[in-house]
Amino acid sequence: MKDISELQFPETVRYAADHEWARPDGDSVVIGITDYAQDQLGDIVYVELPKIGETLAPGEVFGTVESVKAVSELFMPIGGEVIAINSALMDSPDQVNADPYHDGWMIRIVPAQISDMDLLMDQAAYITMLKG
């Protein structure tokens, strides 16, 4: 596992305590897991994502991510309706390891309340939390 200083935490996304990120993109929000989360899990071998059209509340489970010997649940950083999923992850879950903020994105939602984004951490707050 890497040191926190070796990991990437872009300023363009917001962070949740469960290590998901959310990035506004037009009317929708893109969601994935952070560089820290993928590093903790190690080689990701499988990602399970929700069905398009599902509406999920903040904190609700939207999927799971698996390494060889662990399963982690994925929690909604903000609530909303799922309008797209990154189906490329079915065949290439390693994209989450290689590029967690872009090719490794997981779902796109229409947020129930875009203002909920303000409840998430910014880069500095998230790094502070990680350093504990």
Binding site: D43, V68, P93
Partner: peptide, 11 residues
């Protein structure tokens, strides 16, 4: 055998 690639097997 040497160490086996369990990631490949699961992916």
């Amino acid at each position: 055998m040497r160490r086996l690639n369990e990631v490949e097997a699961a992916r």
